[in-house]
Amino acid sequence: MSIRSIHWPHAVACLLVAVTAVLLCFGALVTTFDAAMAVPDWPATYGHNMFLFPLSEWLHGPWDLFLEHGHRLLGAAAGMVALVLAAATFLQERRRIVRWLVVAAVALVIVQGLLGGARVLLDDRTIAKVHACTGPLFFAVAVAIATLTASGSKPSRRSDGEPAVRAGDANVLPAASACLVAASYIQLVAGAQLRHLDASLDPQTFRQIVVVHLVGAAVVAVLSAVSAAAAWRRPGPAQRGWATVVFLLIACQVLLGGAAWVANWGVPAVAQGTMLDAIAPTGPVVARSLQGSVVVTLHVVLGMAILAASVVLAIRAGAAPFALEAAKPQRAGAVA
């Protein structure tokens, strides 16, 4: 394979997805350990240029400093990769949807960086919530770009040579998968409200947010089941894999959600005396324990993985607006 034959937008988009995934993991850990204010200044780090902060101080310093500074460096890396992606896309890609998505990615990564800075300089938890909602959005856009620029990305309704889909089933998978993307994202937004708790929030409002999150979980579970069923009813194996992956991820996520609650606050009052009570650890919850922190962070990371997998499924299933564009990558030279 020569360097000219590489489809750079896809390669760089994949790199962006990888960097962003690690960035989001660091972000989730920052929230778990309440480390967002471990560095009180921004864009500098304790008076240093962020990129020149001593490596030994970062790697061997306190855990919360490691997380927060690492999060900043990864954010900067994601921003730079997004700019490279923009250049590659405008040189090699002609599809308007891809170009617009790249513009959105660059805009989002800038806004996200500024929100991160605002959260630190203003020490404001409301901005932290917005920051937590913009991160997954950027990740979803990056995944969408990577999926659309992949050579094998073909919306099913446009594929040739596959047996025809029954008329009644034709729109189920695209519609359900598109709704799944929206519902997964809303779940992350509701989860962010629970993770970034305002100290002054009253119990009634917190209870309402929990109810929204639980109802959202049920909606996501149903949508993933519908998507999986629709994919398996289709004649070809096209989207079965992704639909099954999403369904299994959500099954794990439901279990992790319960575990995350117990790891934070023990068995909730409504579940006392039930099976959850019987299988929960008998000792007290240990604040900041490794197990508890891993479970809570995994719940967030898996939520983002579900969003990403839903985006891939929706695109491959031909959900609007992606179905409107030609499937295979269109190089600038080929179109011109």
Binding site: I110, V111, L114, L115, A118, L121, L122, T126, I127, V130
Partner: peptide, 20 residues
């Protein structure tokens, strides 16, 4: 950064969290 922050904060329509 400060200018960007101002625009961002205004854009998302949320003021700072009130003091505890």
């Amino acid at each position: 950064a400060s200018l960007g922050l101002l625009v961002t904060v205004l854009a998302v329509g949320c003021g700072p969290t009130p003091a505890a």
